[in-house]
Simulated scan of single mutants.
Amino acid sequence: MGSSTMLLKSFAVLALLVSSAMADWSRGTATFYGGKDGSGTMHGACGYGNLYNQGYGVLNAALSRVLFNEGASCGQCYTIRCDDAKSGWCKVGNTVTVTATNLCPPNYALANDNGGWCNPPRPHFDMSQPAWEHIGIYRAGIIPILYQRVKCWRQGGVRLIISGFNYFELVLVTNVAGSGSIQSMSLKGSKTGWITLTRNWGALWQCNSALVGQALSFKITSTGGQTLHMNSVVPAWWDFGTTFTSNYQFDY
């Protein structure tokens, strides 16, 4: 076999490997917001509140509507890199993994390619500035990116925060590993059967029952298809606004 034939075959194999690797990535764009310390990204549309306290930190992003999926994507993790084949504003070779914590709302007064970056059907990440500066040069303002959804790695167990009043409870689930997001939830009081919760908004799930004074158990199914059975994880003395950290966690 001649050297030229071997060289052509080597290029063909390399092209196939590159094509296969690229199949795992999707194309989009990214901007940034929230200041150099990321403080302006707190209290987003997912309902997590203070992201430092919830363990998410500053490596987060607001998703355009097509990615946000009415809040079903809250808590999901994405690895992002600047598409240096399309831009000279990249920090070449760098990647960053962010958590979806907010919605980047559409701005229909601006064209999709001229300021309406989060308008449907654009896949866009409005990243915290600290996250964005891992992959892009500050002056660029907006960069083309490649992104893929990845597993989330969390320290400790799933956390539950119950808010509301009387016959109305909102349950916020945070620090979710694995797929990072919740598909469905139900709970059981020590004096009730199982009650199916509905998504109120973002990562907040709603229940309309009298539950004060009862120990609470939960069944939580992630978008990755795993289900946690959390028996009596919230004691009967719970009060609105209290955070409960469990020993339960989804598999990585």
Rank of each mutant, 00 (worst) to 15 (best):
V92K: 04
G93N: 07
G93P: 15
V96N: 09
V98L: 00
A100F: 08
T101G: 01
T101R: 11
T101P: 06
L103S: 07
L103D: 07
P106R: 08
N107D: 15
N107G: 05
N107L: 09
Y108G: 00
Y108R: 05
Y108L: 11
A109N: 14
L110V: 03
L110I: 05
A111K: 14
N112T: 06
N112F: 04
D113E: 12
D113M: 11
N114Y: 10
N114A: 14
N114K: 06
N114F: 10
N114C: 13
G115D: 13
G115M: 07
G116Q: 01
W117F: 10
C118T: 05
C118N: 02
C118K: 06
C118A: 11
C118L: 04
C118P: 12
N119V: 00
N119A: 02
P120E: 09
P120C: 01
P121H: 06
R122Q: 13
R122Y: 01
P123F: 08
H124T: 03
F125A: 00
F125T: 00
D126K: 03
D126A: 08
D126G: 03
M127K: 04
S128N: 09
Q129I: 05
Q129Y: 13
Q129N: 09
Q129R: 07
P130T: 01
P130F: 05
A131G: 01
A131I: 05
A131E: 09
W132V: 02
E133S: 02
E133Y: 00
H134N: 12
I135W: 02
I135M: 00
I135Q: 01
I135S: 01
G136R: 03
G136Y: 07
Y138F: 10
Y138K: 12
R139T: 07
A140V: 02
A140T: 04
A140P: 15
G141P: 11
G141F: 04
I142R: 14
I142K: 12
I142Q: 14
I142M: 12
I142E: 12
I143W: 04
I145M: 08
Y147L: 08
Y147A: 02
Y147E: 08
Q148N: 08
Q148H: 07
Q148T: 07
Q148G: 01
R149G: 01
R149F: 01
V150K: 13
K151L: 14
C152T: 15
W153H: 12
W153G: 00
W153P: 01
W153N: 10
Q155K: 10
G156F: 14
G156V: 10
G157C: 12
G157Q: 15
G157H: 10
V158Y: 06
R159N: 13
R159Y: 12
L160R: 05
L160C: 01
L160F: 12
I161C: 02
I161N: 08
I161M: 13
I161W: 06
I162C: 10
I162H: 11
G164K: 13
G164N: 13
G164I: 10
G164H: 12
